[in-house]
């Protein structure tokens, strides 16, 4: 199932359009990945099932389904349970990530992020 590194597909779920745009450019241009985006938890769940991306970058604070709730749905659905999820959040500091990994996330990255390093950081967390 794993694709060659260059064609990794990442789903980015964030309600902030500008952040989606910056992160997308960063991951596509620096990481060389294919990036799918969703502006809400609900939309993200649909795309995760339909597209089965290699990883999901998930915002924490969103209206409607927030990050942890979205993660719980992803883990509950066998179709998406195995997709690694990395939280991308402005809510916490890096040193407090423990409580988030406890929820079943593969890791936590904090905002603001350095767009030149984002792809590498995601890859490090996922062991890519």
């Amino acid at each position: 199932m794993t694709r060659p590194a260059l064609t990794r597909r990442v789903l980015l779920i964030d309600d902030e359009e500008l952040i989606r745009e910056v992160a997308e450019v960063s991951l596509v241009k620096i990481g060389g990945w294919e990036v799918l985006t969703a502006s809400s938890g609900e939309e993200g769940l649909g795309k995760a099932v339909a597209e089965h991306p290699d990883a999901i970058l998930l915002d924490v604070m969103m209206p409607g389904l927030d990050g942890p709730a979205t993660l719980a749905r992803l883990k509950a659905d066998p179709a998406t349970a195995t997709i690694p999820v990395v939280f991308l959040t402005a809510k916490v500091r890096q040193s407090e990530q423990r409580q988030w990994t406890d929820l079943g996330a593969a890791g936590v990255l904090v905002k603001p992020f350095d767009p030149m390093l984002l792809a590498k950081q995601v890859a490090d967390v996922l062991g890519w």
Partner: peptide, 20 residues
Amino acid sequence: LRTPLTSIRGALGLLTGGVV
């Protein structure tokens, strides 16, 4: 505060990085 800063920092980073 961090949400707009994320976009600002991201956009600036991409610009200075020569990505665009």
